[in-house]
Structure formats: C-alpha cells, structure tokens
Simulated scan of single mutants.
Amino acid sequence: MWLVRAFFVVVLALGLSACGGKFRTYNGPEVTSIQVHKSERKMYLLHNNEVLEQFDISLGKEPVGPKQFEGDFKTPEGAYYISHKNPKSQYHLSLGISYPNPAQVEYAASQGKAPGGDIFIHGGPPRPVNKRDWTAGCIAVTDKEMEVIYSMVKPGTVIHILP
C-alpha cells in the first residue's frame, strides 16, 4: 500500500513541476505587430488593428527622447523588428529588438560615439528596484507577462516604439 502512495506522490510532484515552467504555448491569432507608447508606459500586441494583449512597461532610466548612444539609458524610438528569442536571458526570457538601424549607426559614428545595442523586451529585474524606469534602455514587464509575450511573438514581428 505504501508503494502505491509513494507512486502517486511522485506522479503528483512531477505533474506540478511541469505546470511551473516558463515556456507557454499560444494558439490564438498571430501577433502582426507590437506598439510601444513610451509616454503612456504601455505595450500592445496587435493582430492587424485588433489589440490582443496590453501591458504596463518599464523603460530605460532616461525615458524621454530616443536612444542615440551607448550608455545614454534611453529606450529607442522608431520602427524595428524582433530579431530573436533568448530563452536564457538574465531577465527570465527576452526578445531582441533590431536596434540600431544603419542610420543610427552612422549618426552615432558621426558624433564619435557608439550607438549601443542589446535592446530587448524582457522580464522583471533579478532583484527588486525602487524606480519605475530602471533598465539600461530595454522594455521590461513582469516575468509572468514575459512568458505570455514570449509565447505569442515570433522573430520578424514589427515593433513600433513611439515617444
């Protein structure tokens, strides 16, 4: 009898641990674009003109104005695309954003500076922060929200980051 109970305990434990994974599946309408409204601290996942999901976001430590240079702590503005998925991000999960574009690289070079890079949509900080805008220029959501976004968005999806 104890063997049967032990078997069920093991099966239950394995079942519960499978529910706690960070990778979800999504079977809804395709996300055709993402809109980020920096001034409103909102991000929208869209299928054509229909909002599928919306999220409150955190931005770079200097949220006003577009990113121009490495280390300016600003979030880019403009049209980009999701370049890749990073399942091993130090911020839970992340989606790469194709910043900088060639014009941004050229402008930064003309100023004798680097344009920066490694801009992502990612999960919450690995430790608590006391500020709403805390990233080095990325777009941050909670870890649970990032799991949803990661499941819905594919590389190549257009992202419009608006002031």
Rank of each mutant, 00 (worst) to 15 (best):
F7Q: 08
L3S: 14
K38T: 04
P87G: 01
G112A: 13
A6D: 13
R41V: 09
P87S: 02
N27L: 10
P76G: 10
N86W: 00
S83A: 10
A114N: 15
R127N: 11
A109K: 15
S17L: 03
I97N: 03
G156L: 06
M152V: 01
W2H: 09
R24M: 13
G123L: 00
I159L: 07
E30Q: 13
K154T: 10
G65N: 00
P126M: 09
L45R: 11
A6S: 11
V4L: 14
D118T: 09
P100F: 14
D143G: 10
Y150A: 05
V64S: 13
G65I: 02
Y91L: 02
L45W: 08
S33Q: 15
K144M: 08
S110H: 11
V51M: 04
N101L: 14
I57M: 00
A136I: 04
L162Y: 10
Q90D: 11
V148I: 15
I149K: 10
Y44S: 07
P63W: 04
T75P: 01
I57F: 01
P115T: 12
P155L: 09
G96V: 07
V36Q: 12
F73D: 12
F23Q: 00
N48Y: 09
G156K: 12
A114Y: 12
L162R: 13
P155D: 08
P125H: 14
Q104N: 11
K131E: 14
V148M: 13
P63L: 07
A109T: 09
F73Q: 09
I121L: 15
H122D: 01
K61V: 06
S58L: 04
H84A: 07
T157L: 06
V11P: 00
D143M: 06
E30K: 15
V105F: 04
S83M: 03
P126A: 12
M146K: 00
V148Y: 07
S98I: 11
A6Q: 12
F120G: 02
A114Q: 15
